[in-house]
Simulated scan of single mutants.
Amino acid sequence: MIWLIGSGSMSIEYSKVLDGLNKQYTVVGRGQASADTFFEATGKPVVTGGLEAFIKSSASVPEAAIISVGVYQLYDTALQLIEFGVKNILIEKPAAVSYQQVEDLCARCVAYNSNIYVAYNRRFFSSVLEAKKRIAEEGGPTSFNFELTEWAHLIEKIDKPLDVLRKWFLANSTHVADLAFFLGGKPKMLTCFTSGSLEWHPDASIFAGAGVSQSGALFNYAANWESAGRWSVEVLTKDHRYIFRPMEQLQVQKRGQIAVNLVEVDDSLDKEYKPGLYKQVKAFLMQDCEHLCSLAEQKKQFKSFEKMAGYER
């Protein structure tokens, strides 16, 4: 049995995948309103009342759990599951809102012999997996760049708590940073600059930086939440430039040519389900960890994320 913790919109997407994988699962939520919405969308009932009460009434430990709750509830939810004895956990990004919380979760995992993986589903886009293979065949990346611009005029209107918006770089933009570092290599050296501020994100609104990855590839990034832009990642090898703009598509430019061509990939699962989610959940349940982001890996890159965001002064 699998536990799906949370009954919000992302949990609905997980439910579709679990149904597609023919898995038995129990959905645990808190309030009745979200439970009703979840049932209308999936036909699956939700056990309301929260995780703590559900654990007290549970006679057995699930084989795995998926945590899909609010950003500020991720850490406490993971702690409860670890201490209950759950050994395999998939947790929505960023897993926690501070390096100290991530560090504590890592220590608890060691103490309780649990494994936590952070759900960066873009790693499992068909386009990304194809590029990952090609980049390796060409000897690895020589450089890469990425843009993390968020559309502030839309974000300020969404129904999210202010404390979540204040950590929006961690809560959302790390999708792009993680993907770039997944393809190009984790930072070995990193220099960051920030400026500006927004009412809901006072630490910074304009971001730029550069560094060297552990593989030796040079990289740079930028974002301007007060202007125009979009998410994108570009990875260069000695032979090609691989372009993700939009992120779901892989485009390639050959050295010495101007033309940029779309790479055809089998993305049928990315169209049937939320892109990347089916392959990510399948890999998690099969413990195929090659492309999953372990909590230990998240710990290593978390300080880079905080530095890029301007949270670490």
Rank of each mutant, 00 (worst) to 15 (best):
L4H: 01
S7A: 15
G8N: 00
S9K: 11
I12D: 02
Y14I: 00
V17N: 07
L18T: 01
D19W: 00
Q24E: 15
Q24Y: 00
V27P: 00
Q32E: 14
Q32A: 12
A33I: 13
S34H: 12
D36R: 09
D36G: 01
T37V: 12
T37P: 00
A41P: 00
G43V: 11
V47M: 11
G50D: 09
S58W: 14
A59G: 15
S60F: 10
V61G: 05
P62S: 10
P62A: 07
A64R: 04
I66E: 06
I67R: 06
G70S: 15
Y72V: 03
L79W: 04
Q80Y: 10
K87C: 05
E92T: 09
K93S: 08
E103P: 03
A107D: 11
R108E: 12
C109F: 13
Y112N: 11
S114I: 06
N115H: 13
I116Y: 08
A119F: 10
A119Q: 14
Y120S: 06
N121D: 09
I135R: 08
P141V: 10
P141Y: 03
F144L: 03
L148T: 15
E150S: 12
W151G: 01
A152Y: 15
H153W: 15
L162W: 06
V164Q: 10
R166A: 08
K167H: 14
K167G: 00
S173N: 13
D178V: 04
F182S: 01
L183T: 07
T191C: 04
T191I: 10
C192N: 14
S197R: 13
L198R: 12
E199I: 04
D203M: 12
A204I: 09
S205C: 12
S205G: 08
I206A: 06
G211F: 02
S213Q: 10
S215W: 07
Y221A: 03
Y221I: 07
N224I: 10
N224L: 04
N224S: 10
S227I: 02
S227F: 12
R230V: 04
E234D: 07
V235R: 03
I243A: 00
F244T: 05
R245Y: 07
R245C: 08
V252T: 10
V265H: 08
D266Y: 09
K271S: 06
Y278A: 02
A283G: 02
F284R: 01
D288R: 14
L292S: 08
F302G: 00
S304V: 03
E306M: 15
M308S: 01
G310Q: 00
Y311M: 13
E312Y: 07
R313E: 09
R313M: 04
